[in-house]
Design a protein around this nucleic acid. Structure first.
Lengths: 199, 199
DNA sequence: TTGACAGGTTACCAATCGTTAACTATATTT
DNA sequence: AAATATAGTTAACGATTGGTAACCTGTCAA
């Protein structure tokens, strides 16, 4: 019966770790949530740290398969409206997808534990976004859609306000509508500043 | 001997809570760091939660007396250069002041614990900054120093890139020089976009 | 039919947690 | 000088933690 217990453990662990952190999560609660005994967990994972590492792997895999891949498959928009529409779609997914949210929360909570986690956080919260955007903005500047300006600063100026709103949404989910709306408004605002109107 | 033990406990607790969080911190280590016994802590505080609440109060007081007050005493810059210089000073303090840094880290780690903490985090990380900036930007627009644009978006566009760099510095202190430099560069960049050149 | 095994259980272990009690030494007050 | 308050100690408490051992039970292959 239930050959999927191993995965269900991860689902619950994922919820708890991303809310209470590693130290604040205990195995009894994970087991209780699943209706099994704490000892049963050890039939599937050899230690708490093993469960922890597995949840991190889940997040990593999901991130690589979805966030990263969809970033690389992103089209170079040929109009400002196309850029807006495309970005608003991405923002909505990043802001509302449960797996992405939990992974982000986990990384936020644990980012000060060690240098490796810190580096991962910087990479995921800033670097990856900036690099993706640079790949989009460079041709847009070349095509006369955006004003010709320092592309690093441009990517930073675009990515971080949206990140801040996403973080706000992470910690206050009841404000999801508000933050999503504000993020979309910011996309429009950004284009109103940096976009070049066609004549 | 040592009538300041009560305060020294707070200093150590402050370090540990802001690195490992509430659940990840234990009283033995706090005591050991001070060269006293765990039981001695109870001569000064009645419980772990009491110590926790006291550290939160320390952060709150410091924040109100320094960050908030200096924000309110801020001058309205009469030139763009003055704005840049003023802001770079503020950024340096916020980025490097140990007490402010620890308070920020603590809030980052614990922001998902309950709704009140979450609200505090949003207030401190976004709202307060944005409100302060709006008070500065409004007269600057009126005086023809900045282009006339949506002031909420303008404040968001200025505050969040710097916040992101500060967060990066928090988790990777060895990059302090880099992040500080980038933040200062961003101030210049921001003015190059939104500032109105005198003729 | 039997035997192996996967996936549970109960019961327990040692370590660690926050916390308290009883005691001691040192100042301070009366 | 005696009494008291302060700030520390040692030792222990009960609860909780991650982890283990022994046992049970259904499924499935030999």
């Amino acid at each position: 019966m239930s050959g999927n217990t191993k995965e269900r453990i991860l689902e619950v662990a994922l919820d708890m770790f991303s809310q209470y952190g590693y130290a604040g999560t205990n195995l009894r609660e994970i087991a209780a949530e699943l209706g099994i005994t704490k000892a049963a967990l050890y039939k599937h994972y050899k230690s708490k740290e093993d469960i922890w590492n597995s949840t991190m792997d889940v997040f990593d895999d999901y991130y690589k398969k979805n966030a990263l891949k969809s970033g690389k498959e992103m089209k170079i928009p040929s109009t400002l409206e196309e850029f807006k529409a495309q970005e608003k779609t991405v923002i909505k997914v990043i802001m509302t997808n449960p797996m992405i949210r939990k992974g982000r929360r986990l990384l936020t909570i644990e980012q000060f534990r060690d240098e490796k986690t810190a580096a991962t956080a910087t990479n995921r919260f800033i670097t990856t976004n900036v690099e993706r955007l640079k790949l989009i903005f460079a041709p847009m500047i070349k095509n006369g859609l955006l004003i010709d300006t320092d592309i690093d600063m441009l990517a930073l100026a675009y990515a971080t306000p949206i990140s801040a709103l996403i973080q706000m949404c992470d910690r206050e989910p009841q404000k999801q509508e508000l933050t999503l709306k504000r993020a979309e408004e910011f996309v429009d605002y950004f284009i109103s500043i940096y976009g070049i109107k066609r004549t």
